[in-house]
Every structure is written in C-alpha cells, then in structure tokens.
Computed example of a mutant assay.
Amino acid sequence: MTDTFPRVRKHERGYAAEEVEEFLARAREAYAAPRGEQTAIGAQQIRDTTFTIVRRGYSATHVDAALERLEDAFATRERERALHADEVGWYGDARGLAQIVLDRLSRPAGQRFARSSVFAQGYRRRDVDRFANRISRYLENGKPLNLEDVRTVTFRAQRGGYRERQVDYLLDSVVSVMLAVRAS
C-alpha cells in the first residue's frame, strides 16, 4: 500500500498514518452518501479532528492542508443543501453565530476571554486582541479577512494569557461563519 501523504523524517513525529487513512475512508463514504442520508462526518467534524502523533507519521502540514480542502468541500455541499431547503434559516443561523462572535469581541481589550492562571501559559492577550479587532472589522464592515488567516493564526504564549480553548472555539466559529456566507 502506498502512502497518501509524505511521511516525516526518521526521527521526527507526524500524524498516525492508520488514523488518517481510516478517517479519510469514512469521509469519502460520508461525502458519497445520498442527499437525505444523515452522516457522522461534516465540515465541523473535520475541523475538530485530531490524530495521534507518532514517529515517522504523515506530515502534519500536508494532512492539515488536505483536511482544510476537505472541510471546504463538505461546507460547500452542506451550504448548497441547506440553501435548497431553507435559505432564510441558513443565513439566519450564520448571522446569529456572527452576532455571538461580535458580542464576545465587543468586550474591552484584555477582557475578551477568561484568563489562565498566573502559573499557566495562555495566548498573549495583546496578540489575540489585535486579531480579534481584524475579525470585528470583517464582520461589521466587510474589511478583508482571508479564511486561511483565521485557520493559521498563531499567538505567542503568556503567563496569565487568554485561555486557549476559548480563543480556539471563537476562531472555529469565525471559520463556520466565513464558510457559510462565502459565494458559491
């Protein structure tokens, strides 16, 4: 059997190949499912997928890029099906999620998310707040913000910084909004 993705070097770590292959097989099955059939995999599940890190695994960079394309394909299909069924509801859901994001980001800088303890690392508040302002400008005024920018943003660490889980959840919500409203 040939590898779907390049493997990392001998002493490096990457994603467990068997897990990646199994997930991709389930994703192909879900994508090929008939229109009305409920599947266990969708754009959100793809975004939330994690793999075990092992020696000589698949290159995370290559797998992550493929997962982003797969997420885009599922999101486009979900959007088309939802628009066909209920266009007003689909856009209403996206607007509602965007409003939740904006409500969170309307808090004062330095107070937008819960903070980690002074003994634990979190995301640097200033970095997150700066990116949060970009998100707000995108949602409120349509200022340019690339989906790739949201997916790949990184923040420096800081003791007592913002809790990573909350920030990551908000970023996932922004990706959901962007995928829901982009032009087909």
Rank of each mutant, 00 (worst) to 15 (best):
M1Q: 01
D3R: 02
D3I: 00
T4Y: 00
F5M: 01
V8W: 03
R9L: 08
K10Q: 05
K10D: 09
H11Q: 13
H11G: 10
E12M: 13
E12G: 10
R13T: 13
Y15N: 08
A16D: 15
A17N: 10
V20R: 06
E21V: 02
E22F: 05
L24S: 06
A25W: 01
A25G: 00
R28C: 07
R28F: 02
P34H: 13
R35F: 14
G36D: 09
Q38M: 09
Q38H: 15
A43Q: 11
Q44A: 13
Q44L: 15
Q44G: 11
Q44M: 09
Q44H: 14
Q45Y: 10
Q45W: 14
I46T: 02
I46K: 02
T49G: 02
T50C: 14
T50F: 14
T50P: 05
F51D: 01
V54H: 01
V63A: 04
V63P: 06
D64V: 11
D64Y: 04
D64A: 12
E68H: 13
R69P: 00
R69F: 02
L70S: 03
A75D: 05
A75N: 11
R77M: 07
E78I: 03
E78R: 04
E80S: 11
R81F: 14
L83G: 02
L83I: 00
A85Q: 14
D86Q: 08
D86W: 07
V88T: 14
W90A: 05
D93G: 12
G96N: 12
G96T: 13
Q99W: 13
V101Q: 01
L102T: 09
L105H: 05
R107E: 05
P108K: 05
Q111R: 00
R112N: 02
F113R: 04
F113G: 06
A114T: 09
A114C: 07
Y123A: 11
D127F: 09
R130H: 10
R130T: 14
F131V: 09
A132F: 00
A132Y: 02
N133I: 04
I135D: 01
R137F: 10
R137S: 12
R137I: 03
Y138A: 14
E140T: 15
N141C: 13
G142A: 15
L145F: 09
L147I: 15
L147Y: 09
D149F: 08
R151M: 06
T152H: 14
F155C: 00
F155S: 01
R156G: 13
R156E: 11
A157R: 12
Q158I: 11
Y162G: 07
Y162K: 10
R165Q: 15
V167D: 12
V167E: 05
D168S: 07
Y169P: 01
V175T: 12
S176F: 11
S176M: 12
V177C: 06
M178F: 01
A180V: 12
A180F: 02
A180G: 03
V181Y: 03
R182M: 07
A183N: 13
